[in-house]
Design a protein around this nucleic acid. Structure first.
Lengths: 317, 317
DNA sequence: CTTGTTGATCGGAGGTAGTTATCAGTGACC
DNA sequence: GGTCACTGATAACTACCTCCGATCAACAAG
């Protein structure tokens, strides 16, 4: 036996938007301005929602507005509804005109300089309507941006092991050993990984995933101590340090040609098979509205990678 | 330069409901009846939504209705929106009147008979408005029901390791060794786990998690072969088989008293500390509308378990 | 060719939701 | 302590939207 009168109507999206805006601003007039309506309309919408739900959402005084405990919980749900609507609209937009509009692509610094030429040419030739905006950041920052909606698609090294993020693998590439001219391993092939135990290895700064990968490879090779002596902010700098004789470094295969061409003081060595390698992939939010486009983009990019010294992967690798 | 005219309005929930209903029934009149409106209203709503989104959702002929590819994708989004609205309404209901209405609780067979008395008494005394509907099924079926919305809350052995499911641990309980009277381990204490390697162990049928746990314990004890000779559909049967001298079995501590009281042909042995054990917990959907209630229920149940021979856990164990 | 069924269209009634103008309560400030 | 600025709520009005019943046009079956 319920006391509440009559049957309850369904809340409207306008009401949920009104509530969400008030919950965010905690101020009716500001919230009204934010969603482009009048204060009375918003006031009425929130009241109607409270009536509909049978719950007091806000503690109002004439001087300030507070969310009630119930309001706190329901504001989350309201935002979820509005997000779902946003996703639907975004998907409709994507369906209506695929490969148009802005695509905010995040790329890690150890991939960007070597892969972007290929990516940019591909997009320009094949999807000329697509406005690609590139953001070069480290992995952690990229993932944060992906989740917060600041970025749409990432190009980085995987596996990430982050739930809610889908990886579209593109290719594997080996790491090469770059040494000074007079180094005992200089220019050799079939270098065993164990050689890493003895080397003075130069690494990137903290935060670069390439640094962590190099450390992992050292660990796998049986090296106990951290081989850190000097660090550098970019691969170019790193290579210059090697040329200066300060040590050796690992370079992904795609970076090799560009970075070693600048100096005649370098030699390149190849590891014995299976050489240490990294996998590069696209990453997107699970359930992204434009997922189909990103997958098509991945297919196209795999095709465009044929000229590069990498092992291109299938979509399910 | 867009061809489409004017600014687009927002879709309404009624429109999304209309579309979702048509997508489900693929028939306008049936769909209209399903959501309690007239066919013209529904027809208009879908048309308006197509206009709003700028996308053709349905391929209509006068004889049949098909979802367009875009419609397929957007129907999923529309359903997601409606689900989010449903979650909001459910949460509002829960806020308005917590611990009232129906709670569909799923329980595994090896927990139900021993814990339900405590649970039922607790709910009856403390939450008399709560209409507890108990469903006894095996873990896989329970999880399926939880995801599909057929069940609200589960009571089972953890860890599950299922994403999207939150576990609220309740207690740990040891496994005891039940043997015939004349067994060489009969009634002993401090039995080493390695003894399991030598035993003829009777197990439950496939699908019972207790069976898998027992097999795990055997594996940990170093047993290579599967100790399966006979199986039984329930612990009561299993114990009768032991009393008949067909072998030994493992029984959770909570089941011990009830199951061994029926026969004088049994002895109970305790393993050496730390004894093999299982953890029993509530499990709910992540983001469940009534999550706060389930957590309170877990707290209350932990308090009510003091009389049982188990190690009650804290909420973060 | 007739008939039944399909989804689309029409015209009018009702309600929803928006607007502007105004009210009433509260805290800040001199 | 009184004034004032600012808060959210209310009132009155209007516009639009959505709904319904009735009807229409297209199609398939017999």
């Amino acid at each position: 036996m319920t006391i509440s009168s009559g049957r309850r109507r369904q809340p409207s999206l306008a009401q949920l938007r009104a509530f969400a805006a008030v919950a965010e601003h905690l101020h009716f007039r500001d919230a009204a301005a934010a969603i482009g309506t009048s204060q009375p309309a918003l006031s009425g919408a929130v009241s109607a929602l409270e009536e509909t739900l049978g719950v007091t959402l806000l503690e109002r005084t004439t001087r300030k507005v507070l969310l009630s405990p119930a309001g706190e919980r329901l504001a989350v749900r309201a935002k979820a509804v509005l997000e779902a609507v946003g996703a639907l609209l975004e998907e409709a937009e994507a369906v209506r005109a695929p490969f148009t509009g802005v695509l905010r692509l995040g790329v890690i610094p150890t991939v960007a300089p070597y892969l972007l030429p290929t990516v940019l040419r591909l997009v320009h030739d094949r999807y000329p309507q697509l406005d690609l905006q590139v953001h070069e950041e480290q992995t952690a920052s990229l993932l944060d941006g992906l989740h917060s909606g600041r970025l749409d698609l990432l190009l980085l090294a995987v596996p990430l092991g982050v739930p809610g993020v889908v990886e579209l693998p593109l290719f594997d590439e080996d790491f090469m050993l770059v040494t000074p001219l007079d180094h005992w391993l200089g220019g050799r092939e079939g270098i065993p990984r164990e050689a890493l135990k003895e080397l003075n290895l130069l690494l990137l700064d903290e935060g670069h995933c390439l640094r962590d990968q190099a450390l992992d490879i050292c660990r796998e090779a049986g090296r106990e101590d951290a081989p850190v002596t000097t660090t550098a902010a970019g691969l170019s700098t790193l290579v210059q340090l090697v040329a200066g004789g300060l040590g050796c470094t690992l370079l992904p295969r795609t970076a090799l040609k560009v970075e070693t061409a600048r100096s005649s003081q370098l030699l390149t060595g190849a590891f014995a098979e299976p050489a240490p390698s990294r996998r590069v992939a696209f990453a997107m939010r699970a359930g992204a509205a434009r997922a189909a486009e990103y997958e098509e983009l991945a297919v196209a990019l795999r095709g465009a990678l044929a000229a590069l010294p990498v092992r291109v992967l299938g979509p399910d690798a």
